[in-house]
Nucleic acid binder design. Sequence first.
DNA 1: TCCCATCAAT
Length: 785
Amino acid sequence: MRFSPTMLLSQLRLGRRAASSRRFFAVSALSPNLSDSEQHLKVGNFDFNRVLNSSRNDPNLALSFLGQLKQHGVSLNVNAYATLVILLSSWGLDRKLDSVLVELIGNEKRGFCVMDLIASIGEEAEEDKRSLLLVRVSSALAKAYVSLRMFDEAIDVLFQSNRLGCVPSIKACNFLMNRLIEFGKTDMVVALFRQLKQLGLDANGYTYAIVVKALCRKGDLEAAAKLLEMTPIVFAYTTFIEGLCANQKTEQAVVLVKELIDMKALAGNDLETAYSMVVRGFCNEMKIEAAESVILEMEKAGIGPNVYACSLIIDRHCKNMNLPEAMGFLNAMLEKGLKLNCVIVSSILQCHCKMKEYMEALQKFKEFKDRKIFLDRVCYNVAFDALSKLGRVEEAIELLHEMMDKGMVPDVINYTTLLDGYCLRGKVVDALDLIDDMRGSGISPDVITYTVLAGGFARNGHAKEALVIYETMKAEGLKPNAVTHNVMIEGLCSARKIEEAEDFFMSLENKCPENYCSLVKGYCESGLSKKAFRLFIEQEFPMRKSVYFKLFTNLCIEGYLDKALAVMERMWVYGIEPGRSMYGIMIGELCRLNNATEAQLLFDTMVTRGLIPNLITYTIMIHTYCRLNELQKADDLFEDMKQRGIKPDVVTYTVLLDKYLKLDPEHHETSCSVRGEVRKRKTSEVWREFTAAGIGLDVVCYTVLIDRQCKIHNLEYATKLFDRMINSGLEPDMVTYTALISGYCRKGYIDKAVTFFTELSRKDISPTGDLVAAAVKIATLNEGL
DNA sequence: TCCCATCAAT
């Protein structure tokens, strides 16, 4: 019987139909009852080498033959592999060789030790090609192990090959070292480097550069510098420059660059690269001015605006939410020949989103599109995000189609953003459909995708489904992170599924501080601020500012001032500065309770800590002192605020005016004293200042004035004020009417009072106690008539 | 086989 690959292939095809009749092949799929070992073909002494060698001029044929064999569970023996490897190597099919080796390593049933292959190849290869081949194969083998992240085995290959008398190539070694760095195994690189001599290997320039890189990654800049002295290779210096930048030593990198320039060791493209690294370093160190000055330096050296360096600077400005600076720099660079691209555009769009200026982001997206600037899927993604946050997910989907029509393929981030859009709108079913679409186009959801989805379901009250999603995610081998747990906890809480949230929280094996924060926030979210406080006060670690703020405001709203103060005190303990608004809220609450002492204490604390109270806080304090008849303190604060450049507004003036008017001797018709005179003077002083400031009067202010006129029985003027108020477009409120009606009643002008009362009742203003009292008064007076 | 590649999702 003569064997040829084609024959075997046709037999295989037949074999699918009648496997049992075949001598050589048992197709596992058709014999499910066989044990694992029996499922594999008993190849016996079948001469694969002959088959392979017979097709040595037709790689495709041989490979498809082997492919078919593999499908049927046939394993090659070590000699067959050796032949195959030799052939692949002679055909120059390096990539195929790599994948065959990867497969070989992964095949646990191969029945021989991988290093046997080297020995076998040594035996089978032709004399003149042997050593070259062995180097090639051992290198490929090391690479194969590296690609499987089996680093120890890869290093072992180097040593074993050496033992078998073949020296692996330094290239393979460099490759291995590079990958080791990629996976953070810098110590292994250094160890391997020390053993190179033992392996009979000579480090080349690349090796030095790689080891310098490894040392820099480790943070051992000194060792890197020392090693650098041993090599004159320029690109090793650029590696070191990069290392300095990555270790927050960009300043030193700059010095080195200058030295290298002076030594004429760095010029042209290499120099541009080094400068770009320095720019990146400064940007990472938030030294953006220094970064910009490097651009000028580059310009002096005749290097035009480098698009990467410029993009980094623009992006830094954008991340700092400093759009004017970003645009200023961009425009300056555009004039110098920089070309606008989609990366820069995306930074700008993203900046708007960060500042919650979604409309502006969309506007600019459209502008750039109209200007025919190519926008990539990152730019589209920012637009998706903006639309999603605005609740316009349908438009985002339209945009997705537009993007796809332009030939761009959406990635997992695009899908996740859109998914979030659906979840924000509560359209969880659409979100699930989108996951299907996504899977359909071959993209798997990642941790963030699942986090968005689980959070979306939780927030929308679908507790059970959220948990199913959470479990699915784990079942797919994805590891939920703290954020995943947090969105679950906070989502469930905000949907008032407190019990579910607590159960979920309890189920977490390793609770991190962030998880506690989320439960605190969650309790707040569902109005359980006391519960939140209890949990909060037990935790002895600093939290994010937003947690304190949320808990604090909720406690204030629900009137637990002492607890809110305890939150502030906790912040001081951890050296976290409560912001102006927290102080403001607390001062306001204390003032509401007329606790001016505590309020003043907090006010002073705030000032001591360098925070200047705002207009509202000042006004609240002034108002409180007025209420408590501590006019001197009110006055002092009033002067203080003006000195700080805070302009009093209509409310501040009204508060003071109201107080002074009430103290005015005319108010008490008969009394007249020196003290009264002072007050009178003060009243007109405030009034003068008020009108001079050109501030328009509001309803409350008019009402104060009207009330005043009513009280001193000047009803004519009160009515005049009332008319003026209406003419200036203001709508009188209950208090205004009450003041007027009471005034007219007091004077006995019942008709007038009734007129105003009916005018008021035609309007849709709900009566207050005062007004009811006025109405009763009117009724009584009418009776009297 | 080296340095560099910038922007987006919880």
